[in-house]
Simulated scan of single mutants.
Amino acid sequence: MWISVKDVIDFTGLKPKHFRLEKDDDTGLNEIVSGWIEQSESLIRNYTNNFVSHDDSNIPEGVKNICLRLTANMVALAQARRDTPVIKVNDWSIKTVGSDIFTDDLKEDLAPWVCERKSYKSDKVEFFAITGD
């Protein structure tokens, strides 16, 4: 993993009680957070078109920071969904908590590592024949 579970816990102040786990259930919390870290890494790899390799030893510090913030967004979303799944906007409308975790600022910060995909499927190939006439 690019970042550690401890990094996420320190950054977010997460505790087992936030997810209704037993007070000393660090193992359960670690499993939840490590799954979110793996999901964040996958989202980043997909967004950068796999420019960020699967080799964990060469991950730039900037990408690690983005992974930490993306995982923290997952934590915040999970807490919001558990605590208040419905938001009352006014007397007439109610909506659910949004699910936007991969925000525009994270995508902008990832811009230096995005590798543009080149597709040759739509390129036209034209042939012409030269005759002796």
Rank of each mutant, 00 (worst) to 15 (best):
K118H: 13
F127S: 15
L14S: 08
T96L: 10
K17D: 11
D10P: 04
R82M: 09
L106C: 05
F19R: 01
V52T: 02
F102H: 04
W36D: 10
K64I: 05
F19W: 11
D123P: 04
R45H: 13
L29N: 03
I59P: 04
A72E: 02
M1C: 07
D55A: 12
I66C: 11
L70S: 00
L70N: 00
A78P: 04
G62F: 02
N90R: 05
S40N: 07
K64Y: 04
G62S: 10
K17T: 13
Q79G: 05
L106T: 05
I101A: 01
A72N: 05
N58C: 14
M1T: 08
T12R: 01
K107L: 02
R20E: 15
T48W: 02
V52P: 00
C67R: 04
C67I: 03
P112M: 06
D26P: 01
L43W: 12
F128I: 09
T12Y: 02
A80G: 01
V8N: 01
L14Y: 01
Y120I: 15
V75F: 00
E108F: 03
T103I: 09
A80P: 00
T96F: 10
K121S: 08
F127H: 14
D104S: 10
K88I: 12
E22M: 15
K6D: 09
V63W: 04
A111T: 12
E116T: 07
E61C: 07
K6F: 07
F127Y: 14
E22D: 15
P60I: 09
T71D: 02
K107W: 03
G132H: 12
M1V: 06
D55L: 10
E31D: 15
S34D: 11
I44N: 03
N49P: 08
T27A: 14
V33F: 09
E38G: 08
N46L: 08
V52S: 00
I59F: 05
S34W: 10
F51L: 04
I3T: 00
T12L: 01
K64V: 05
K64N: 07
A76R: 07
N58Y: 08
R82A: 06
S34H: 12
D83R: 08
S53W: 05
R81P: 00
L14N: 01
D26C: 03
D91G: 10
G35A: 13
I9E: 00
E41V: 11
V125A: 15
F102T: 07
G28Y: 03
C115Y: 08
S119M: 12
G62H: 03
S34I: 12
R82W: 04
I3Q: 02
N30H: 07
